[in-house]
């Protein structure tokens, strides 16, 4: 499974890579929307994991662009605090699942699996 991880904080990217690679998944990372967009255009990913709050273009912008390029790709978002507002907005943007930071490895893996299965349905 090939996963694109987008977040502005290197430690978050690093943590995610560590967990997902341990599960045997292939990861590519981007710390800006621009990079993420470029990677998406060049590769086919099975899932995109993105943070929401980023300087400049934020996670929703990323999701919007990703959906243009790969409409069928499941999207999992990471957020510091899930509010009904975020949930509502995510639904509109076609987000498959959410996960609140901080999370344990097990929680992240479960969230990725769930996002995939939601999308497949």
């Amino acid at each position: 499974m090939k996963i694109l991880i987008v977040d502005d904080d290197p430690i978050v990217i690093q943590s995610c890579c560590r967990i997902l690679e341990a599960e045997g998944m292939e990861t590519r990372t981007a710390n800006t929307v621009k990079t993420g967009e470029k990677l998406l255009a060049e590769n086919i990913f099975d899932l995109m994991l993105t943070g929401i709050k980023m300087p400049g273009r934020d996670g929703f912008e990323m999701i919007q662009r990703a959906k243009k390029i790969r409409p069928d790709m499941p999207v999992l978002i990471m957020t510091g605090y899930l509010t009904s507002g975020t949930v509502e907005k995510s639904r509109r943007f076609g987000v498959s699942n959410y996960i609140a930071k901080p999370f344990t490895p097990e929680e992240l893996v479960a969230a990725v699996r769930k996002a995939r299965s939601v999308c497949e349905k």
Partner: peptide, 21 residues
């Protein structure tokens, strides 16, 4: 404060659990 703590906390949780495996 909480927001700032979240990211490092993610890392702490991740790596602690990875080592524990």
């Amino acid at each position: 404060v909480a927001h700032e703590i979240n990211n490092p906390l993610t890392a702490v949780l991740t790596f602690t659990h990875m080592i524990l495996r």
